[in-house]
């Protein structure tokens, strides 16, 4: 009798164990599919960009796309020279990085090596918030505050120009550069600094000759992130940089960037399937390849200059 109950309990136990096992497996599979969504997203991005670009390049030879010096996709005499848009993107990014990289690095060194603890704890959240401001707000600021201000110094400056958009974009990127660089510098072990001080070095010498080289791979990733933010930034340029395609490397002129062009087309009413509609995917693909190249370069730099302690 007692034996029979035990056996009964045994089968019930086994059944519940099996049910539990199945439930566990099911949950794991569900979680796995959730994690896979991010891979699906990447595949979908590449699929959409390539699919529409293929149709585009059937009508516009790749050679023209790369070598033509005009960008007039919506005119009767259509030209599709991406160089025109690329020049705007590169010029504005250059201005932005000329602001963000020096200032971001100085702020990072200051916060990591010089600033008292209380100041650092106070400033970091403020910088973080600076990076959280919507970019359209920065666009408004560039167009309606910075440009009029610059026009007082440079009377000939047009209302739309890459300089003011680039400057504001640089301020926007500072927190990205400074916070990652600072994290990298703070990860450098204290013993290295102490060794440097013991040799009689000052704070400044320790910071620039010991800490910065030791943290270089992290600082390089911060710069790379800054570059890809600058290249992909859209609203500041669409608002303050102008939407006229213009092959120029002069930041005092208005010019459309790749991103501003996409916004301009999206604001209009282009029929689905027209060449004009496909240009934005070709432009987007160019942008995507550019940021991908940045990320790869960052990866290589990190590997190359990684210092392990």
């Amino acid at each position: 009798m007692a034996k029979a109950t035990a056996a009964l309990h045994g089968t019930a136990y086994l059944a519940s164990r099996r049910a539990r096992h199945i439930r566990e497996r099911l949950i794991e599979v569900l979680l796995f599919f959730a994690a896979l969504i991010s891979v699906v997203t990447t595949v979908a991005i590449v699929y959409v960009l390539v699919k529409e670009s293929v149709v585009f390049f059937e009508q516009v030879p790749l050679r023209d796309f790369l070598t033509d010096r005009q960008w007039t996709p919506l005119f009767d005499d259509a030209h599709f020279g991406i160089v025109v848009l690329l020049s705007g993107t590169l010029t504005s990014s250059f201005v932005a990085l000329a602001v963000a990289i020096p200032l971001g690095t100085i702020i990072a060194i200051y916060l990591s090596e010089f600033a008292p603890y209380r100041l650092r704890e106070m400033v970091k959240p403020v910088l973080e918030m600076l990076g959280g401001v919507p970019t359209i707000v920065y666009g408004y600021f560039a167009l309606l505050f910075v440009t009029p201000l610059l026009q007082k110094v440079m009377p000939g400056l047009p209302g739309f120009n890459l300089l003011s958009a680039g400057l504001v974009m640089g301020i926007m990127i500072i927190p990205y550069v400074s916070s990652i660089s600072e994290d990298a510098m703070r990860a450098v072990p204290m013993a290295l600094r102490e060794g440097s001080y013991a040799m009689g070095a000052t704070r400044f010498q320790t910071a620039t000759r010991v800490v910065v080289p030791a943290a270089f791979s992290g600082i390089a990733s911060a710069y790379i992130l800054g570059i890809s933010r600058a290249v992909g930034e859209t609203m500041i340029l669409a608002v303050a940089g102008g939407m006229q395609p213009n092959l120029t490397f002069n930041p005092l002129e208005p010019a459309a960037t790749i991103t501003a062009y996409i916004v301009q087309v999206a604001l209009g009413d282009l029929p689905h399937g027209s060449v004009g509609y496909q240009t934005i995917f070709a432009a987007g693909l160019t942008l995507m390849l550019f940021t991908l190249a940045c990320n790869l370069a960052g990866h290589v730099l990190r590997k190359r200059f990684r210092e392990a302690y």
């Binding site: 994690a35 896979l36 991010s38 891979v39 997203t41 990447t42 979908a44 991005i45 959409v48 960009l49 699919k51 529409e52 992130l225 890809s228 290249v231 992909g232 930034e233 859209t234 991103t259 996409i262 916004v263 999206a266 689905h272 934005i280 995917f281 987007g284 942008l287 995507m288 940021t291 991908l292 940045c294 990320n295």
Partner: peptide, 28 residues
């Protein structure tokens, strides 16, 4: 590994590219 590298890369994709993805995929 693929999922992890992919998430890092996705964080660096410009937001307007997500817009193009949505235009091609969700909208049409």
């Amino acid at each position: 590994d693929l999922i992890e590298i992919n998430i890092t890369n996705l964080a660096g994709v410009p937001s307007i590219v997500y817009g193009l993805l949505a235009l091609g995929l969700f909208v049409y």
